[in-house]
Design a protein around this nucleic acid. Structure first.
Ligand code: FES
Ligand code: FES
Lengths: 135, 135
DNA sequence: ATTTAATGATACTATTTTAGTATCATTAAA
DNA sequence: TTTAATGATACTAAAATAGTATCATTAAAT
């Protein structure tokens, strides 16, 4: 059972790396190649993830020579739910799996209600996991 | 983000149905066809799910004419984690996604620890959702 | 100006997981 | 012996995930 797909996982690792670099040197930018080298992740895939983070305003990117990435906001403001949401859609254990057809049995929806509550709990727990708390 | 796959979902619905039948009439058995008809689920797939439940001792099955399924234990003893585990493997948000290679960076494992804790919470919350509480 | 080193955009393939189907064997009651 | 049930198994289809490749664009360094 996967909570994070690889995209997400790689993104989180990369963010942690960038975050640390930022702490070592104020305003530092980090290139994709540096991250790939340091973390040994598949090049094309990580680049894609970084681009996605960039599009979603988690990272600020600089193009051209001396370009690279840096965090767009304070690490305490970046949490895992945001990242998961970007790569995997909203965190909710949706559960009327009779997708198109309407529920045949109202009573069954007790399942759904319970799982929805759990889902909310997980979501808010993940919100509390920020980049600060990870790096 | 899916917590239950269809297999699991169909299985849960079926179990609820069987459970109710059991309450209506002591020792009742229910056939796959009855469930399929009542819940309008894909025949071949539900049969497979029922067989799996049977193999895993959640259901008792009777073959031949007048055969069918019934719960193998009291509905309060059957919980969703069991069912999920059967169809989807153990409930844990495993998360060193660098599967084969060892973790490049011990510090990162804060991610894993936090997610593992969450995973335990979810698991025990799901344990509390029993067939009794659903039907 | 030109080169170089970076990201942006995009299109593609491969693999794995999930979803679903079909068929025949076996069993036990009628 | 027929019939109505599950057991076992093998197969196909669709969707999600994982991964690759290529070229365009940008901006600093020379
Ligand atoms: S059966 Fe549809 S929400 Fe429960
Ligand atoms: S990087 Fe492997 S467990 Fe965290």
């Amino acid at each position: 059972m996967k909570l994070l797909t690889r995209d997400t996982d790689y993104a989180v690792r990369a963010l942690i790396f960038i975050c640390k670099a930022g702490r070592r040197r104020e305003g530092a930018t980090v290139t994709a190649d540096e991250i790939i080298k340091a973390l040994k992740l598949p090049k094309a895939l990580l680049r894609k993830s970084l681009q996605t983070l960039s599009k979603n305003k988690i990272l600020i990117s600089g193009r051209g020579k001396r370009g690279g990435f840096s965090l767009s906001k304070h690490p305490s403001k970046i949490n895992i739910v945001d990242i998961i949401t970007i790569f995997q859609g909203p965190v909710n254990f949706t559960n009327c799996l009779l997708r198109n057809t309407p529920c045949p049995n109202r009573r069954m929806c007790k399942v759904r209600k319970k799982i929805l509550n759990l889902s909310k709990y997980v979501s808010s727990a993940l919100e509390k996991i920020t980049l600060s708390s990870l790096s």
